[in-house]
Design a protein around this nucleic acid. Sequence first.
DNA 1: TTGAAAGCGTTACCAC
DNA 2: GTGGTAACGCTTTCAA
Lengths: 340, 340
Amino acid sequence: MTPADITINDVARAAGVSKGLVSLALNGKPGVALDTRERILAAARELGFTPNPSARGLTTRRAYALGLILRRAARTIEVDPFFAAFIAGVETVLSERGQVLVLTVVPDHEAEARAYERLAADKRVDGFLLTDLLADDHRIALVQRFGSQAVSLGEPVGGSPFPVITRDYDAGIDELVAHLLGLGHRRIAHVSGDERMLHGLRRRERFEQAMRAAGLNPVIVPTDFSPEQGAEATKTLLDSAEPPTAIVYGNDPMAIAGMGVAHERGLRLPHDLSITGLDGSQIGTYIYPTLTTLDNDPAGWGIAAATALLRLVEHGEPADVALPPARLVVRASTAPPSRH
Amino acid sequence: MTPADITINDVARAAGVSKGLVSLALNGKPGVALDTRERILAAARELGFTPNPSARGLTTRRAYALGLILRRAARTIEVDPFFAAFIAGVETVLSERGQVLVLTVVPDHEAEARAYERLAADKRVDGFLLTDLLADDHRIALVQRFGSQAVSLGEPVGGSPFPVITRDYDAGIDELVAHLLGLGHRRIAHVSGDERMLHGLRRRERFEQAMRAAGLNPVIVPTDFSPEQGAEATKTLLDSAEPPTAIVYGNDPMAIAGMGVAHERGLRLPHDLSITGLDGSQIGTYIYPTLTTLDNDPAGWGIAAATALLRLVEHGEPADVALPPARLVVRASTAPPSRH
DNA sequence: TTGAAAGCGTTACCAC
DNA sequence: GTGGTAACGCTTTCAA
């Protein structure tokens, strides 16, 4: 007889009370005499009883689960260092509250919409974690239409009825550009990520602004965040009439691919070309040269997002949270330019 | 009124039948007149009805969900390129059958055991996908004790009552070693992964065997699969009295970290040192030099594992599956040695 | 403070 | 072939 087989009735019988009382006691609700409550709790512990969430959800209309739907082209499926740590952060919050994460990976927008609908219609989850937010993200409306809840990583331009988790990247970008300018760079390019994505766009804009403020002309090559396009963009830049002496990549995987291209052409890094990533990643510490980047603490995002969403779901209290600003991590991939 | 709010009663009313009949019709069971069945199906489609899995599971004792529990030290959380694609493969199978993946990430063995117990006791999942199999994996017994089901990626030494998914790596290792020998390497080292893990151990043993068969002395440095230890191992090897001219790493992230160390010491790759990964990864195509490795098709693992587990859960039919052997992918990180 | 009973949305069993 | 009803495990309401 595994713990899975013991029900509220067994506890009630063991404690010599009705199952209604057991429910009250276990959920910490008032109206149970102190000694009965203790007797019930003892019996439950003894038997190793844990309430069946499905049965529970049937009356409480909760799933005791949160949903994360990742849209990823099969081609770029593996590269994002953000998610593993993000999910780990989410988990630390969920596990201590007996909740669970339902993860779905879909290849395109169509499958994505179906996935939201299915999880919501089947009452599989109480709310969604919205990552990789697009500038004008249709998922906000989707979730509302399906009568579910959500929290978004980043602030949708159209506003959102749901809590919004943000982290200031502007200061970090400024710092990063200042760092490169301080080293003597003047021709600095930005291989931006998918500009339909909010953080991709935002970073690009701030980069341009920072460059203009320094009286310089920002060069931008947009990509889809994949290392493949990161490599392509690098070739384009290095082939141009006035190649940059420093390149800021939209994420670390693209920066690594960019390094590959530079090495291949016999450039010595960082002297012939300074390179930075964005968002930080573990592997960036172990490549050569070690990668200058902006730290992003994915686990922190996960903790904040799960906490905010649970709070909304359980108490109807939407509360935005602003995470500490991204910090510049200077490593060995940036140095004064050797040519001008 | 979202699809989530319409129940089997609404369908029954719309079709003018009892809900019992609706259940039979929707589940394709016999005992429903053809025209009534069609009327019911039409009504269900019209209303956008999807059965509530929680309510369903209450009587069928199924969760319509599979569980994946990842044990990962916070430190090595992000690096494994295997999982994203593996999960995507799992999803392709689950989504078309209305099932869902519950993902949990835990930091250590203790939390891991608790996670299995919780998911099983709460009837959150119908079975588990067992990855990163240890040589003598306690999870097999855990799952049995909790009365749940599982499928394992790799064959436990003690045998298993559950289906086993395997892929022949031996031939690939042989091929890889032969490739290096053919290039003229004689001092070949292996930076192995965690040898408590079945695939880590197995690869190491086969490597040794292949080297001995060629009359050579295999050098092994074991690690935990993290790029950090991969870098450390590389330093150890390069500092030794007779440094290797080629290193086979247990996975691609370690190989990349190893390249970092080599670059840092001014070695020209691949001429001064040949490097290979194992398991394949996308980023390996974009680093410099591009990484020779063994292809592992993580999505294929995911599809096979989910299919086998669902089959076991639904029909009680355990069926092992042997995936096609790993293929050697020769890229630019291996070349004849420049010194002897 | 407690027990009994209704109800959540489904499946399964029995009559008819 | 079909409808009614019990049962799944829980929460919640209502009486006592």
